[in-house]
Amino acid sequence: MTIRDMVDILKARVLLGEDKLETPVYTACCSDLMSDVLAFVDEKTVLITGLTNPHVVRTSEMLDLKCLVFARGKVPSEEILEAAAEQGLVVITTKATAFSACGMLYEKGLRGVPVPLEWGAEEA
């Protein structure tokens, strides 16, 4: 799907990057823990989050993410949006909760970022 499809599915509002809505999206991830995003995400994907601090944008910058989706109608501060604009990030906000947003996108065929994790021997 494209970012525009995501906007339609999530009934989202586009805060930044109106000109990049035709960008294709192959996978997504959802986390409020930037530590985990930095550790496990290694492709240009989409991040769904409820966290609206500057480090969400910094993390996106380090990983070259395409699009940030803020859940529960959250809108980051002007300062954060400016930083996102400098990087050319698409930023959208949806009224859906993070859980529901993931469900709606999954239902339409979007899948999670592959995470190469296996159970340790003691947990198997």
Partner: peptide
């Protein structure tokens, strides 16, 4: 509260 401190930093650097 900023989304860090999950104990992934050093292992992630090494990786």
């Amino acid at each position: 509260s900023l989304g860090f401190g999950a104990g992934m930093g050093l292992p992630n650097m090494k990786r």
